[in-house]
Write a protein that binds this DNA or RNA. Sequence first.
DNA 1: CCTACCGATCGGTAGG
DNA 2: CCTACCGATCGGTAGG
Lengths: 207, 207
Amino acid sequence: MTVAARRGRPGHSLDSLLDVAVEVFNERGYEATSMDSLAERLGVTKSAIYHHVPSKVELLRLALDRALDGLFAVLAEPAATSGPAIDRLEHVVRGSVRVLTGELPFVTLLLRVRGNTEVEQHALGRRREFDRVVTDLVRLAEDEGSVRPDVDPAVTSRLLFGTVNSLTEWYRPGGPLTPDALADALVTTLFTGLRTTPPDFFGKKSR
Amino acid sequence: MTVAARRGRPGHSLDSLLDVAVEVFNERGYEATSMDSLAERLGVTKSAIYHHVPSKVELLRLALDRALDGLFAVLAEPAATSGPAIDRLEHVVRGSVRVLTGELPFVTLLLRVRGNTEVEQHALGRRREFDRVVTDLVRLAEDEGSVRPDVDPAVTSRLLFGTVNSLTEWYRPGGPLTPDALADALVTTLFTGLRTTPPDFFGKKSR
DNA sequence: CCTACCGATCGGTAGG
DNA sequence: CCTACCGATCGGTAGG
């Protein structure tokens, strides 16, 4: 393609538009973000954005699907579908950390969705489906004797993924903590516990 | 006071106004909530709200202070300031769960704040101060040998309170899970771990 | 991609 | 002069 063949401004791709939109949605909130403020950040007019997407909510849908598709892909991986439940659970946790760190802004946006629009409600539905799969996995691990039976599987899975999801609040890529090291710290803490020695482990009072 | 001495409508108190405001802020986001929508929920006009508070941001300030005051009160309790660091840490975790469940809407709002206004930035500053106290406590517990030393104290404290804070995403009072049972499940999971037996605990391969 | 707009709604305030 | 509001409207900005 010759230079002369290019018409108009270089412009933005849908991907770069989506990156900026998600960044601003995370800063200000989806509803509080105006299309004009997006346009200003992109250095174009509001109407230019409507060349790429038909509506504001379509930007949200694209962003949420990207996060959800990544998370569901983890559930479909071989290591998540066969073997001891405790190992499958650990794989899902590590895979979720990998997707969360790799697609951080998209997962962050997903976790802030409150169901105010149909698009948000659909995303919440997919999140609930993900939670069901994880809860079933925790229940299976309890049945197999590898997870402590004294905590309800639904509560356990929520604590587990509450911890994973909370990473969006502070983890920033490019720092000293790599995604793999982060996953190690999280799995160690949640699977083995913070304490050096479990209390009453040898049948004596710990204090 | 006689009945005849009361003038005007019975009206709303500042407290009931604040309760409704925080509820709507959590549903729609602070910025996306209009004073008119608050007025509609209260069954009064917008002007009536301005009789109680000088501005929208003042409602936010009152709500965030209530959450932060509750959390800082936990840090000042005797059980949080003396004794073995691991026990002080457990007390702060249990106290935070108690405040979170007791003042759920206020803490939920606090955790959604992103620093878009001066009031929000002040709240974020107080949250960072809380985090520093917890991190110091984790470091102390590591020095005392009661918390595993192979995870950075800053990471540990973030995982710990990431899990606590994630409770706002799913815990609802009035259900079968009491605040105390919730705190037990969380402390068990995080301090002792999900696994029934730590791998390599007796020097043999666990799998 | 822009200029030029729309129906409606924003946070906040007037007099009574 | 008080508390507890109301009906109407201000100058600007929202998504499309």
